[in-house]
């Protein structure tokens, strides 16, 4: 093998990055860390959903379990499961330590 592109000389290649001991804080890392935790999801309309975050996708579509709907601080609904369409989401905030 003489193709340098296939196997770059070891002295030129950068050292491998250390394994991430702590998450860097990017949105992706935040979302990885927050799955399975209790969260508050606030919609643009001001309505809150509190529950356990089952999963989410790149559109910020969210699946919550044990969900409570809060309007002006009052519980107005409860859902075993809830799918929230991502375009309505203002923020996702952790209710417990990540």
């Amino acid at each position: 093998m003489t193709d340098a592109r296939a196997e770059p000389p070891t002295e030129v290649s950068p050292p491998p990055p250390p394994p991430p001991v702590q998450l860097t804080g990017s949105p992706t890392d935040f979302l990885k860390g927050v799955v399975g935790k209790r969260v508050k999801v606030r919609l643009v309309s001001g309505v809150d959903y509190q529950g356990v975050l089952s999963c989410l996708d790149g559109f910020m579509n969210i699946a919550l379990e044990q969900t409570e709907e809060h309007v002006n601080g009052v519980v107005t609904n409860k859902y075993g499961d809830a799918f929230i369409r991502g375009n309505n989401v203002l923020y996702i905030s952790a209710l417990e330590a990540l």
Binding site: P27, F30, L31, V34, K40, V44, M60, G86, N87, V89, L90, Y91, I92, S93, A94, L95, A97, L98
Partner: peptide, 11 residues
């Protein structure tokens, strides 16, 4: 007050 929070960029 909020702890760790992700703000949706679209807003």
């Amino acid at each position: 007050k909020l702890a760790h929070t992700l703000l949706n960029g679209s807003n």
